[in-house]
Computed example of a mutant assay.
Amino acid sequence: MQLYLNGIALVVGAGQGIGKATALAYAEAGVRGIVLAGRTLEPLLKAGEDCKAIATHKDFEAYAVPTDIANEDSVKNLLAKAVEKFGRVDYCANVGGTMGMKAKFSTIATEDWLSVQQTNINGIFWLVREQIRVMEKQERLETPISSERRPAERGSIVVLSAAAAIIALQNGGAYTHTKYATNGLTKAAAQDHAANGIRINAILPGYILTEGLAAHPQKTAETAKHIIEASPLHRFGCAEEVGDMIVMMSSPRNGYMIGSSVLVDGGQNLSGEAVH
């Protein structure tokens, strides 16, 4: 089934993990170009080469823009560079974020609380706001399935939330509250801009085995075993499983979904148990 993703994608956090998997999925799905954003240039360039190797659009281009989403000016620069390069942005995947350190709520240091909030709330706000501002100015992107009943869209934005917004992550208060906020931000933005052809949704992954998770300073074999035992699938998720879902959510075939929070957690929420 064709997803009709023939526009320009922008992926934040594209250097590794879910972000890179999402970028690769967009390239394979047929986007004309992709903007890769993240803190460090080298992994973005590598992701761009990997995207080119599997891209299905004959004129595919990848463009890397180092970006710190915790800085408003850096976010504005990202969108300005994207428009300067490609003229428009059609599909945005905001995968950047931070988990911070685990701590009981009463022991969370103010600086840790504010640091996580600066990236996961303020950073996502700046990204979504600037992406909407670009999309509002561009023409709707026609596809073979566009019709009066199924109007062409100006753009799609997918925000990375987390399953922690369904079941609070124990000792993760500084992180958990930002994901609840992300869901609210998504709904508010979707409500305001859907009528103008801009769809905004959130995706809520569970425990996905990525470089970031594997390198987390508080990981233990016992925690990994507990996660697997609590999952009905008895495994971690793969970054590709989330990336594929983000790309499907971006497709105009998914044109009636707005303001949704899509849970992709391998059934972790079914037990109602938050992993320590």
Rank of each mutant, 00 (worst) to 15 (best):
I203E: 02
A195C: 10
V247S: 06
K76T: 10
V83E: 13
F125L: 14
A25C: 12
G259V: 08
R150S: 13
A168N: 09
S231N: 15
L160V: 10
P144R: 07
D192H: 11
V134R: 04
G96F: 01
I166S: 00
I246P: 00
V247M: 09
I200S: 08
V95I: 14
N94Y: 11
M135K: 03
Y207N: 08
Q268A: 14
A215H: 09
A168I: 08
F60S: 00
I54E: 08
M135H: 03
S161A: 15
V11A: 09
S106K: 09
V75M: 04
K52H: 10
G272D: 07
L209S: 05
V247E: 04
Q138D: 06
V75T: 11
R253G: 00
V12I: 15
I18Y: 03
G155R: 06
N71Q: 10
E229F: 03
G19C: 05
L160R: 04
A190S: 14
I124A: 14
G259E: 09
H226W: 08
A14I: 07
L169F: 12
L204N: 15
G173R: 04
I145T: 08
H57G: 05
V83H: 10
V264W: 00
A64F: 05
R32T: 13
K85I: 11
L127A: 14
I132L: 07
L10G: 05
K46M: 08
I108Q: 06
V12G: 14
T67C: 15
I208S: 01
E28M: 09
E28S: 14
S271N: 10
V128Y: 10
G87T: 11
N71K: 12
C238L: 14
V158T: 15
N196K: 15
K81H: 12
M101G: 12
A214P: 00
V31R: 02
G38W: 05
P205N: 07
D192W: 08
K137V: 00
P252R: 01
G155P: 04
I121M: 15
A224M: 13
G172P: 09
A82M: 06
L141I: 08
D192E: 15
E241R: 11
E153P: 00
G38K: 05
V159F: 01
R235C: 07
C238Y: 13
V89R: 02
P43L: 11
L213P: 00
M101Y: 14
P205F: 04
A25G: 06
R150I: 08
F125D: 06
A274M: 11
A224H: 06
A55N: 05
T176L: 09
S251L: 01
Y207R: 01
D265E: 07
A165Q: 07
V95S: 10
C92K: 01
A109V: 05
F105G: 02
G38I: 07
M245E: 03
A163W: 00
I8C: 11
T210V: 02
A164D: 08
H216A: 13
G48V: 10
C92T: 09
R199G: 06
Y256L: 13
G173D: 01
E130S: 15
S74L: 12
N254T: 07
F86A: 12
E84C: 03
